[in-house]
Design a protein around this nucleic acid. Sequence first.
DNA 1: GTCTATAGCCAGATAGAC
DNA 2: GTCTATCTGGCTATAGAC
Lengths: 203, 203
Amino acid sequence: MPRSSFREQMLRVREDAIVTAVNRLLAEKGFDLMTVDQVAAEVGIAKASLYKHFPSKEALAAAAMVRVMEQGLQVVDDQAARHDAGVLDRLQAVARWALQMQLAGQMPTLPSQNSSLRSELATHARYMDLLMEISDKLGAWIVEAQRDGHIDASLPAELVLYTLYARACDPVPAVLKSGGRFSDDEVVEWVLQTCFSGLSART
Amino acid sequence: MPRSSFREQMLRVREDAIVTAVNRLLAEKGFDLMTVDQVAAEVGIAKASLYKHFPSKEALAAAAMVRVMEQGLQVVDDQAARHDAGVLDRLQAVARWALQMQLAGQMPTLPSQNSSLRSELATHARYMDLLMEISDKLGAWIVEAQRDGHIDASLPAELVLYTLYARACDPVPAVLKSGGRFSDDEVVEWVLQTCFSGLSART
DNA sequence: GTCTATAGCCAGATAGAC
DNA sequence: GTCTATCTGGCTATAGAC
């Protein structure tokens, strides 16, 4: 329908701006402290207009989570296409991306205790699909890394996966950065090093 | 004043019950999702009575944090009194205590983004004193462990300290436990192992 | 689909009797 | 110090004009 494509494009651009604002605010303050008024103000539209695009605050957060997970899945697939790297390098590259996003203030956090948000996300098909696809792919790499002796095979693969996921909301990088004495890159590499050598097989 | 001691004792018992309820609710839902009504209901008194003991919700949380840090300081001092253990064993024992408290639902969490709470805590003398005393003592052990080659000396001591503190709010143990396939002790030891071998000196 | 204005709700905090 | 009842403000969400 070329007749409606311009309007649809405008719609997508507007919704993209909304999701960008939500993403930033979620990264800065988390879901509970983010208000819909702040989102509207940051986008520069009225609050009621927001609700024409998204039916609830939870839906706003879900949209931001979906977008960041699409980006994450892209990173995973990019790593899968590398033929020069082993599974450990790929896992590290994904964790590095998450840490860099977090330090750049672009990683939305899901304060794991909010029930309304969690139940909404659990019923969000696209979100759950992305979560499972990423988990499956990372899980396969983890099992392979354990088989090859790069990751301690006595650890449950779940523990390894959750430990990697937890880097996306690790408070340590932000606190270290706030001290002002280290660069982002230093912080990222230190955290990566302590994380992965903690998971590595005993020598 | 022996005349007033009975009343004062009752007061302390009542306030202790309040702090216990706050502690549990903070561990369960965090500061933002905990309501003062819930605290009052759990203690079995009216909300207005709470405000006779503590002037604000933030003060309630601060009291709970002070108590848990007094317990933590006690653990640190107990470890300092052990003559059979090296610094690494002592650091591990403290981290183990924090993880066990968390899995038992008794470790209050401070969702690091709330500004009203953080500013109140920053002006809370007893809280800051405890934080500094614990940090000083753990910091000394960390430096010693680095000098002795038990912890990677190329890592900033700050990073090591924050990494240990972060175990108290690590989401990994709770998620692993919720799967139901592992015991608390297994989870604690796995997390400790990955944490400390990540910090250990390269061999 | 955008806005202004407001409904409805809930949580933190307080008044005032006892 | 405890209670019941209430105030106050901020938040999500919606009504209704344009």
